[in-house]
Amino acid sequence: MKISCIIVEDIQIAADFLRKFCEKSDLVEVKGHFLNVADALEFLDRERVDLLFLDVEMPGATGFDLLDSLTYSPKIILTTSKTEYAFDAFQYHVNDYLKKPFTYKRFLEAIEKLQQTQNAEPAAAPAPAPALQQPTSVVTGTDFLFIKSEDKLVKLKKDDILFLESMRDYVKFVTPAKSYITYSTLKNMEEKLIGPIFLKVHRSYIVNINKIDDIRGNTIYLLGNQIPIGKGHKDEVAARLNIL
């Protein structure tokens, strides 16, 4: 079966080369090409793919912004003409890094490496980056916590957190000003954040109940964000929020 992919690239020549290489290999099927992050995200909201060929510097938002917004974890091959992003690529567990312009030979190496990783995955999941080891990724205090994000420990006041979102092996902390991603699981966060203001409302979301604006149907609205209420969490949500 072919690997499904999309190309997120603002330079048409670069995207054309990639498409040509994919077709030539007969290993990768291109589902679409997007010139910017917003269009790619719109597509990815509707359809899942196995692999993203992702440029970093694009108008409006970077490839890393796209990775921050993804709700699942496809394979990622960064395509950029800068080598300075190697550290970020490592942090984001990017599968490969192609420096533009690259040859078909180099492209094929990346795809073959990806296939080998996929075959090996059931036996052993990829190890997290040492700097992001789970036990040290979050340190909690009474009314604040430190999370390891972007190679530093960021202090977050619990009151400032709007919600937490599970991103498979990562958790996104969303505050009104910024989002932070740390290597951890939502279950781990649930244990650390136990207390009166946080409530798990969905298998992928924990919300700060003080920040909820309103609830419509099975959706919680807080500061412009919409969070679904999971079927199995409805009763607890109703009880904790004093829904009459």
Binding site: D10, I11, I13, A14, F17, E57, S81, K100, P101
Partner: peptide
């Protein structure tokens, strides 16, 4: 962007 283009 131009740098990338020159490479091709």
């Amino acid at each position: 962007t131009c740098k990338t283009l020159f490479g091709y």
